[in-house]
Design a protein around this nucleic acid. Structure first.
Length: 285
DNA sequence: CTTGGGACCTGGCTGC
DNA sequence: TGCAGCCAGGTCCCAA
């Protein structure tokens, strides 16, 4: 499940491809090309130079020399793979290649996606795709005050809000659970009920778990793999995510799993207690 | 504004 | 052993 640290790792791994030209494109599975229609996609991407790779939330953006942008979203099981010599990656066992871009140096950039939920766009204006995203949690302007502003008045479980891409970009199920554990906040706490102290702790924790995830090159749970076909290591550092019934690193009690807005949520009910909602202030008459 | 459900997908897992 | 059915969760969309 590529989230911000995984997509950031992919982006960094793809930097060597910047400056290369797409000499041919093969859409193996038309389903993943969301825009434009497949024939147009294939003709429009051909002979374009890839200028630079960037990341916005969980989206990977490649600016092209004609002003358009090639955008990928991995959703649950997507990955980008670079192959230079040797057999085509599409022959590797357990890899589901949906799109292959052949580059001018003979290498290939392939989009693989087991569950076919991933998406690829080729658009003149990238804002069409990434325009509604919330702030980047690792940018300097994402301060504790900014986070407090996002949480204020939102009567939504904090876990759900952390995963809302229009509120904050890039956080998904795994890193939301990790950030809430680190800041000792129960996932069902309403966002508007968090104290100033808790918001400050959460802000710290969000940045810490994301940076740690990037440093470990992402978490290889399920199918996430780096473009060079090596796994990330962040899953070994998780304290609660995907650790059902394993001991809490703080208190030793078993990690539990509940559902918050339909999403499996791992946490420690002892270290992340649910306190009563703050009394709602009555408006002066 | 918020919640809930379904839809999209497939392979790994569970249970009979 | 085989097979049906459940489950994972990012995003969108519709209904209440």
């Amino acid at each position: 499940m590529p989230e911000l640290p995984e997509v950031e790792t992919i982006k960094r791994d793809l930097q060597p491809l910047a400056g290369h030209i797409v000499v041919d494109a093969t859409v193996v599975d038309p389903l993943i090309v969301f825009y434009p229609p497949v024939e147009e996609f294939q003709s429009q991407i051909k002979d374009r130079r890839m200028l630079r790779f960037s990341r916005r939330g969980k989206y990977l953006v490649c600016d092209l020399d004609d002003g358009k942008a090639l955008i990928f979203h991995m959703r649950m099981t997507g990955s980008l793979l670079v192959s230079r010599d040797g057999p085509d990656v599409s022959y590797a066992k357990g890899i589901w290649i949906r799109l292959v871009l052949c580059l001018d140096d003979g290498s290939r950039l392939s989009f693989a996606d087991r569950r076919r939920l991933g998406r690829v766009w080729l658009v003149p204006d990238k804002q069409q795709v990434i325009g509604k995203l919330g702030p980047e949690p690792l940018e300097p302007d994402f301060t504790a005050d900014v986070l407090a502003g996002i949480l204020a008045k939102r009567r939504v479980p904090i876990k759900a809000l952390l995963c809302d891409q229009t509120a904050i970009a890039g956080i998904g199920n795994m890193y939301a659970d990790e950030a809430l554990f680190e800041s000792r906040i129960h996932p069902l706490t309403l966002a508007c009920d968090l104290s100033r102290k808790e918001v400050a702790r959460l802000h710290q924790a969000i940045q810490h778990v994301l940076r740690a995830g990037i440093a470990a090159k992402g978490a290889s749970v399920d199918t996430y793999i780096r473009p060079d076909n090596t796994p990330g290591q962040a899953q070994f550092e998780f304290k609660v995510a995907h650790r059902l019934r394993k001991p809490c690193p703080r208190c030793g009690r078993p990690i539990e799993r509940i559902f918050v807005r339909g999403r499996g949520t791992y946490f420690c009910s002892h270290d992340q207690p649910l306190r009563k909602h703050a009394p709602r202030k009555k408006k002066p008459a």
